[in-house]
Amino acid sequence: MKRQRERICGLYGITDGRLQGEALLETTEIALRAGLRLLQYRDKTQEDGRRVQEAAALLALCRSYDALLVINDDPELTRKIGASAIHVGEEDPGINDLRTLLGPEVLIGVSCYNDLERARRLVAAGADYLAFGSVYPSPTKPKARRADLSLFRAARPLGLPLVAIGGITQDTMAEVAAAGADAAAVISALFGAGDVAAATQRLQGLFSGKARRHHDQ
């Protein structure tokens, strides 16, 4: 499990729900080929058949590039395709229920929004990584609660990987890394870019360079 947790680092791509089918797979492979190693499949539709097919295809694709696929908000889909990671929010099943369904080895990431106390409770319950956001105004969730970057330093003693999410772009990537996040979740700035390969490399480089300088200080 420790090795799995260590994979929560750097650029954390989240799929754009407007991309489906072959377009989704082709665009994702471009990002993986360019160096993306952490991907979340996020699709809020009720088209279960298509979602199962896409998630299974993405899982195979990620495994071929030694990347980790995280399923968003869907324990049954995670179980059905045999994914090794899931991300859940406050309205999803609790960690104990997820462990019962998915087993002890599945990585469980949790949204903590702007709530450090929630993060502490979830660490005690057995979470594997913590996400805070929205750290900037988000086009995906314009009404999302805002989370100050100071939360990452405050949450560091909790001992789990920390993910920043919400409105992160090339202009803010380095700031997020310097604040102490282990990973930065990106949707639009990655999958909405005209050149996905270049965006992958640029975002990863911005994050990794700043994070290295931060941790070396």
Results as ranks from 00 to 15, higher is better:
Lys2Ile: 14
Arg3Pro: 04
Gln4Leu: 12
Gln4Cys: 12
Glu6Thr: 09
Glu6His: 08
Ile8Asp: 04
Ile8Thr: 03
Cys9Asp: 08
Ile14Glu: 02
Asp16Thr: 13
Asp16Phe: 12
Arg18Lys: 13
Arg18Leu: 14
Leu19Cys: 09
Gln20Tyr: 07
Gly21Asn: 11
Ala23Lys: 15
Ala23Thr: 15
Leu24Cys: 12
Leu24His: 10
Glu29Tyr: 02
Ile30Thr: 15
Arg33Gly: 11
Leu38Ala: 12
Leu38Gly: 09
Gln40Ile: 10
Arg42Thr: 06
Asp43Leu: 03
Asp43Ala: 08
Lys44Ile: 12
Lys44Met: 14
Thr45Arg: 05
Glu47Cys: 13
Asp48Trp: 15
Asp48Leu: 13
Arg50Phe: 11
Val52Arg: 10
Glu54Val: 05
Ala55Asn: 01
Ala56Tyr: 03
Ala57Cys: 09
Ala57Met: 07
Leu58Ser: 05
Ala60Phe: 03
Cys62Ala: 06
Ser64Thr: 09
Ser64Val: 01
Tyr65Asn: 07
Tyr65Glu: 11
Tyr65Leu: 02
Asp66Arg: 12
Val70Asn: 10
Ile71Leu: 05
Asn72Met: 07
Pro75Asp: 01
Glu76Thr: 10
Leu77Cys: 03
Thr78Arg: 10
Arg79Ala: 14
Ile81Trp: 04
Ala83Gln: 01
Gly89Leu: 13
Glu91Phe: 02
Glu91Thr: 14
Pro93Met: 09
Asn96Cys: 12
Leu98Tyr: 03
Leu98Pro: 09
Leu101Phe: 00
Leu101Ser: 11
Pro104Leu: 10
Glu105Gln: 13
Val106Leu: 05
Leu107Cys: 11
Ile108Ser: 01
Gly109Trp: 03
Gly109Thr: 05
Val110Gln: 04
Val110Asp: 08
Asn114Leu: 06
Asn114Arg: 15
Asp115Glu: 11
Leu116Tyr: 03
Glu117Ser: 14
Arg118Pro: 07
Val123Ile: 02
Asp128Ser: 02
Tyr129Gln: 00
Tyr129Cys: 10
Leu130Asp: 00
Phe132His: 05
Phe132Lys: 11
Ser134Cys: 15
Val135His: 04
Val135Tyr: 00
Pro137Ser: 07
Pro137Lys: 13
Pro137Trp: 10
Pro142Met: 14
Ala144Pro: 08
Arg146Tyr: 11
Leu149Gly: 02
Leu149Asn: 03
Leu149Thr: 01
Leu151Tyr: 01
Phe152Pro: 01
Arg153Thr: 14
Arg156Tyr: 02
Pro157Gln: 11
Gly159Trp: 00
Leu162Lys: 01
Val163Thr: 12
Val163Phe: 01
Ile165Ser: 04
Ile165Lys: 08
Gly167Pro: 13
Ile168Tyr: 10
Gln170His: 15
Ala174Ser: 15
Val176Gly: 00
Val176Tyr: 02
Ala178Thr: 12
Gly180Ser: 05
Asp182Gly: 06
Asp182Met: 02
Ala183Asn: 08
Ala184Asp: 08
Ala185Asn: 09
Ala185Ser: 15
Val186Met: 03
Val186Lys: 01
Ala189Lys: 11
Ala189Tyr: 04
Leu190Val: 04
Leu190Ile: 02
Phe191Gln: 00
Asp195Thr: 15
Ala197Met: 06
Ala197Trp: 03
Ala198Gln: 11
Thr200Ile: 07
Thr200Leu: 09
Gln201His: 13
Gln201Glu: 14
Arg202Tyr: 04
Leu203Asp: 09
Leu203Arg: 12
Ser208Pro: 03
Gly209Glu: 02
Ala211Pro: 03
Arg212Ala: 09
Arg213Val: 12
His214Gln: 08
